[in-house]
Simulated scan of single mutants.
Amino acid sequence: MKVLCFESARNISSDLMVRLEELARPRGIQQSPFWFQTLEQTCTMPDDQIFHLCTVDDDRVPRAYLPLCRPARPRFFKGARELHALSSPYTTEFRPLLPRNSTVTAPLLASLKRYCGSFDLIGFEALVEDDPAYGVTVAALKAAGFLVLDYKGFENWYEPIKQPDFHQYWARRPGRLRNTYTRKSRALERQGNLRIDIFPDCKDLERLLDDYETVYAQSWKEAEPYPEFTPALVRRSAIAGCLRMGVLYLDDKPLAADLWLVSAGRATIFKLAYDDDAKKLSPGTVLTAAMMRYVLEQDQVVEVDFGRGPDTYKKDWLSHLRHRRGLIAFNRTPIGLTAAALHMGKARLKKLLKPNA
């Protein structure tokens, strides 16, 4: 086994990129190299350092992949030298490509100092607790000598789909949601010509993207922290076949827009917005129902989730709640141990530092 390190996704050869995409495909779009390349190009600061670590066998077949960022400004502890899994406020799940095989994972972790320099801690967020990679990551970090703290991250509403039938799904929704949809869709039809375009059935991606940004600018939402991210993601995920983008029009004026991502049998409601002036017509509700019908009937997904956040309206659409997890792995440096004492508490740290703990 050999560990390769690339300081930019642009430096990864095309053949290795293709193989990494194949390795990531069963875990979903947010583990794919093009996702991390998009984050690198649109969500990092000029002084941040990027490392794409990859373990390959003698035939250059990738066995493990871990993209990392050394931020110019520490996030967890002032003065610390930190590494983080390459993520952003847009990351809704992170499933590290670290196999259980210690002969693959151990060399990758052992190479961190060689390629990334000295550091005091490593941070992971948006980990999926019931994914095998979560336990593998914790065990591998502990085996490498790190002190590991896991914590509860953001809330994530989701719905397991046993039968991809929209009528069955819709019958399980609260009566107020179904009644709102019926009343508002009729009201919209009375107002004028109601139309919903959904990519990929609607091929005019650039027009849909322009209309999405028009709606977003007229919505209640704050400006994007990284405005270049969404256009780049839309174009790349469309090429990868993962994009589902819908726009609702009334007399050709866009009133609501949804951006969903579909991969590995799952659909993530990634972004949605509606024109604030049309709030009384509930165009967002009408559009989201159409998008839900599409991913159930066309994509036959087995799960739908609502991304990041505890917003109360989400439980009308999806019935289950879980938390994404986070990890901080502290190195046994003076600053690393000081940071561990702050985050864990001195008593817990002493226990972990005891032999055989």
Rank of each mutant, 00 (worst) to 15 (best):
L272R: 08
D131F: 07
D197T: 02
D276Y: 06
D59A: 15
L23F: 01
T91F: 08
D316W: 10
P26D: 09
I122F: 07
P89K: 01
Y313C: 12
A264R: 07
L259W: 03
V136Y: 02
E155V: 14
D252Q: 10
T92F: 07
G192P: 11
G123L: 08
M344R: 05
H167R: 13
G265K: 10
V262I: 14
D15S: 15
T338G: 06
A139L: 12
A24K: 03
Y90G: 08
L287P: 02
S319C: 12
P174F: 02
L250F: 07
A9M: 04
L208V: 06
L16R: 06
T214A: 14
A289N: 03
P107R: 10
K253V: 14
I196V: 15
P283T: 01
E228P: 05
V247C: 09
T38M: 10
R70Q: 10
Y249K: 07
P231T: 04
V304D: 02
T180C: 13
S185H: 05
P46H: 04
Y90P: 04
D150Y: 00
I29F: 08
A256E: 07
W317T: 11
D47E: 15
A278S: 12
L147P: 04
T91W: 06
L4M: 13
M45A: 05
K354C: 11
Y294V: 00
L97N: 00
P227N: 08
H167A: 14
T182V: 14
G28P: 00
L108T: 09
S282H: 02
R322D: 10
K113Y: 10
C242P: 02
A126Y: 06
W35H: 08
V3P: 09
L342V: 06
L121W: 01
R186L: 12
F270C: 13
E155K: 14
K152P: 00
V215Q: 05
S13L: 10
I161A: 12
V104M: 03
P334E: 01
T91V: 03
K350E: 14
T105R: 04
A223Q: 14
G309F: 11
S13M: 09
Y169A: 11
F229G: 08
G336H: 07
